[in-house]
Amino acid sequence: MEILVLSNSLHTYLVIGALLFGIGFYGLVQRQTFIGMLISAELILSGASLNFMAFNRFLAPDPTVGQVFTLFIMAIAAAECAIALSIIIAVYRNYKSIDTEDVVDLQG
């Protein structure tokens, strides 16, 4: 049962991180509302932090670096989420819609 000790290999985490990134990228392209795009961006960020944590556990000489970096990514993601949501609410107040195709006033 070699497959049961998969949690002790760097590659597992890197592949999961890549998958999270890919799924988030797909959502970012395919979603039609601002909130859906924000959710996909959060997925991309968590894929990146998973990569940091994996490298931190298996390769880094100082195992606190990756944890500190992941905590900072979390703080940045929370700030980004707050700003993006208030922009979304302001846009909704002006356009009565959160559809990305409706907010095209600057389009030539």
């Binding site: 979603r31 039609q32 509302t33 909130i35 859906g36 924000l38 959710i39 959060e42 993601a77 929370a78 989420c81 707050a82 949501l85 979304i88 609410i89 909704y92 819609s97 959160i98 559809d99 195709e101 409706d102």
Partner: peptide, 21 residues
């Protein structure tokens, strides 16, 4: 983060069900 997004959905968002465009 998830709770904040849920609040924004309740304030601003209909679902994508009606597919505006």
């Amino acid at each position: 983060v998830c709770v904040t997004i849920i609040f924004a959905v309740m304030l601003a968002g209909s679902s994508e069900l009606k597919q505006l465009t």
